[in-house]
Amino acid sequence: MQIPCPLCGLRDSREFTCKGDAVTLDRPAADAPAGDWHAYLHLRDNPAGPTRELWYHGGGCGAWLVVMRNTATHAVSGAVLASEARHAG
């Protein structure tokens, strides 16, 4: 599996650590109800197909990425910087 880092180019997945579903970018407000925090922390769509995940390029530029990947085939279709993905909403 290779991941196209926007800063470093196409790199081996060994350089990266997967954090999990990119829903963790959408952090609830500090005073949000407990149910929102439960959903944020635990509940997942867990799709069998295209998904968006957070990957950390620890063996490279150190950037957090949002990686578009298919969980059924392991095909990676793209990656953007997490900071830009967040700004894009």
């Binding site: 599996m1 997945s13 060994r14 650590t17 997967c18 999990g20 579903d21 867990n46 069998a48 998904t51 995940e53 990947r69 969980t71 059924a72 085939t73 392991h74």
Partner: peptide, 13 residues
């Protein structure tokens, strides 16, 4: 392998 997968096969690392 430490990433979500339904592929029933892993990778080389």
């Amino acid at each position: 392998d430490f990433y979500a997968s339904y592929a029933a096969r892993g990778n080389l690392p």
